[in-house]
Write a protein that binds this DNA or RNA. Structure first.
Lengths: 189, 189, 189, 189
DNA sequence: ACTAGCGGGACGACCCGTTTGT
DNA sequence: ACAAACGGGTCGTCCCGCTAGT
């Protein structure tokens, strides 16, 4: 009687995590209480605390889960050369950033609400960023870039910048600036 | 003129705003309650609400005041060519970002806690960003840059990126990446 | 059905409403805080706000519930002629008014604390008064009174007057005046 | 420097009392804070506490002052027979009650917010009611009424009833009911 | 495994009436 | 007349535990 109590109904944990993801991203972590999450997920409070030790634990799961999604999503951008993959990755971020539901980068936003770098949530963010930096570096190496380590840092810089700017400025202008910066960072094809 | 009623004691409003600035930046807006602010500012609750209509009003004052400080600070970087001024501005940001108390950009952090773009606090952030973009553009024009509008956007992108990265990554690596990106964006001297 | 989870213990909502009724009537709405109500009802604050959206919502429930009680109570005064029922109703009000715990009419008192006629609490009061007026009129019609509509208004006037006077003046004198006015309004038997 | 600091400007105490009267009557005593009163009266807080020992003291002054006004107002209804004076008094109350700013009887409203009969405010209300009852009785005696004491009580009952009903019900209906009850209480001319 | 409701206590923002000093 | 101080009080929300029932 574990997962599918009612036909087609997702398990409680999944519903909680999905609801939390939606609310945390749209409204911020501190602005959303657990009562609201359990209400919108249609889950009892005891069930919540059965699956997550605390709200912070749910936030952590939110970050970790999102990181998994992101890795999986990027894994689907397979075909084409390493450089083309990089360009596709940034183009996808631009498309996302120009969308109506865009509210910035979840990792950056969460970090803004967790000042302590030693906090598990921040560690999870740091872990995601390490993976991201490695991904950039590996693609640059594969593309034969002469300075993969430094350039990976520049790409991370660009990624952070666009994540913020798309939320705070006019998307069209940002998109152009991103394209130009990316070209300038990656150099001539 | 009531400023110096008690010898050497700053007025209540100033103490409140300074305390709020310190705490909001270090720990986040939602994480700091008004009770703590008035306690650390040594101000009565009624006095707080005499000067600020609400906590949001204080947050707004925090953002607006910080923007004024920033404009004044940048105005002091006077001597040298426009391009040198730009480089100095980014160098100063890097110095700040590498410092121990760095906690990211206050505007970006505050925006992460105020999702609604129509909120007065967000409007103040937007206003500051408009000023910043115009500053970059004017300096680029003065420097004779062929694409001041586009490049100003690229600089804003870089600024946002370094603000975030200095908080989340290793400062030394970020500094190098910023220097490189800035050179690449501004082109050869 | 969760009513009797704990043996003999009434459900939280009932305890809250009963406590509120007692305190609101005895001391006034504004003079009684929710903290006191939940303390005397032995209920957690979260439980309070689970059952009532706000204090005003509790006040509304208090008025509505009291109206139900009153209708039920009057329904028990069954036997006898319509005129006798009217006299019994007023006699009961006099008995109540002469009691030691009398503090005036709850509807009038509540209305004195809610000046806005559009407020839901005032609407509930108005609804109760409509029912009361209709009750008087129906009984007068049944009693064959030639002017039921007008006389119902006169009885309502008398009811309001005695509700106030019993609280502010000497009960014995009021009782006599009520009896005399009622006889004069209803005419000779 | 007491009364007329600025030519034509009323003294602070008067402004305070007038403002308090307006606000207390329109919105209730508990609902109006001293800050609001001193703000609307354009008076400093220290001045307020120079003239009134406490807010309760202001409430008391409000009741006492209102009682004086009422006595003076009734004293102007001089000409005509005692019975005609009584009828004029009740007609005036009806005119007031049908007005747009009518919010019930200030004494009844204030009593609803001060449950303790021993409170000075309640004592002042009681004192006013004694005067009123005596006024009715004296007029009835002068009119040669056979039962002045009892009938004075009936008139007080009617007065309270109309004070409440005009606030809570349709004014036109109330006026008719009042006229009819008054005639019935006073008997044929 | 999951639900419903309740208890608990700390804390959120905000306002109260009152006093003091300049 | 103004600003500030003061402590306590307002209503409301926070996260978290627990019990009983399905």
């Amino acid at each position: 009687v574990t997962a599918e109590t009612l036909a087609g109904r997702r398990p409680a944990r999944t519903r909680l995590l999905e609801t939390a993801t939606r609310l945390f991203y749209a409204e911020g972590v501190h602005a959303v209480g657990v009562d609201r999450i359990i209400a919108e997920a249609a889950v009892a409070k005891a069930t919540f605390y059965h699956h997550f030790a605390s709200k912070d634990d749910l936030v952590l799961a939110y970050v970790v889960e999102h990181s998994s999604w992101q890795r999986a999503a990027i894994a689907t951008i397979e075909d084409a050369s390493p450089r083309a993959r990089l360009e596709k990755i940034f183009a996808a971020m631009c498309d996302l950033g120009a969308g109506p539901a865009y509210r910035g980068c979840p990792y950056i936003n969460v970090a803004a609400e967790y000042p302590d770098p030693a906090h598990p949530v921040r560690q999870a963010v740091a872990e995601h960023r390490r993976w991201l930096r490695d991904l950039y570096r590996d693609l640059l190496v594969a593309a034969g870039h002469p300075e993969p380590e430094l350039t990976a840092g520049m790409l991370l810089l660009l990624r952070d910048g666009l994540s913020v700017s798309f939320d705070l400025d006019d998307p069209d202008g940002v998109r152009t600036a991103v394209r130009e910066t990316l070209a300038s960072v990656l150099g001539p094809r």
